[in-house]
Design a protein around this nucleic acid. Structure first.
Length: 218
DNA sequence: CTCCCGATAT
DNA sequence: ATATCAGGAG
């Protein structure tokens, strides 16, 4: 593994190119307030954003406040979330979370990372998405794409998301955390695919240590 | 580490 | 048939 300094340098070049390649990189979940983004994040576990966005319009029209969600019967919510998978857990988590938000936070989603990760159904990934996309604060979002790309690009060798986040925080300037998160996820979705990455068309190919060592890549 | 879980791409 | 999708809890 190269030095932290070298990784910082390479990460800066990669980020610069990715920002230029995906100037409109952003959260692709549809939402219009922090509560809707929390719900979208919970539904997005092991599910595509596209499918989440196909389900949320009807939900957001029906449930407008944390109290609305908390009052929804488990069976009804399960049916409404069914197509996103993990429907029992997701329905249960949403109800527990919204009940707590309603009772302890006046129905508002706290804009504080430490408060967010203590809430049921919210881990570091979702808390960071909220910090970046709902509250405009710094955060590195380590989802399945970030995990895969950070390893392929040689920014870390860790597999544990919490450790990956910690390592990335050391090589990316805090001010760029949000942009870095969006840029990496966009690149993962549009080029550096899990199964068959499009290395031949990759704009950061020259800084990627994985580009030729994996024969499975086209 | 395992479990939760439907929909889609390969 | 199997891998993968903006994960979190036990």
């Amino acid at each position: 593994m190269e030095s932290t300094g070298k990784r910082k340098e390479r990460a800066a070049k990669v980020l610069k190119v990715l920002k230029k390649t995906y100037p409109d990189a952003r959260c692709e979940l549809d939402f219009s307030n922090p509560l809707e983004l929390v719900i979208g994040c919970i539904l997005s576990a092991q599910c595509t954003d596209k499918r989440v966005n196909s389900v949320t319009p009807a939900l957001f029209a029906k449930y407008r406040t944390a109290a609305d969600w908390a009052a929804a019967p488990q069976a009804v919510l399960e049916q409404e979330l069914h197509s996103t998978g993990f429907f029992r857990s997701k329905a249960k988590n949403i109800r527990a979370l919204c009940r707590l938000l309603d009772e302890q936070y006046g129905g508002q989603v706290p804009d504080d990372f430490d408060a967010l990760v203590k809430l049921p159904g919210i881990g570091r990934k979702t808390a960071n998405v909220l910090m970046v996309s709902a509250f405009g604060k710094p955060g590195i979002v380590v989802d399945t794409h970030m995990k895969r790309l950070a390893n392929r690009l040689g920014f870390t060798r860790e597999q544990n998301p919490d450790k990956i986040e910690k390592e990335l925080q050391k090589i990316i300037p805090r001010k760029e955390w949000g942009a870095f998160s969006h840029a990496m996820v966009f690149h993962g979705r549009r080029c550096c695919y899990a199964r068959k990455p499009a290395c031949s068309q990759c704009p950061v190919r020259e800084w990627c240590p994985s580009r030729e060592t994996d024969n499975a890549r086209a």
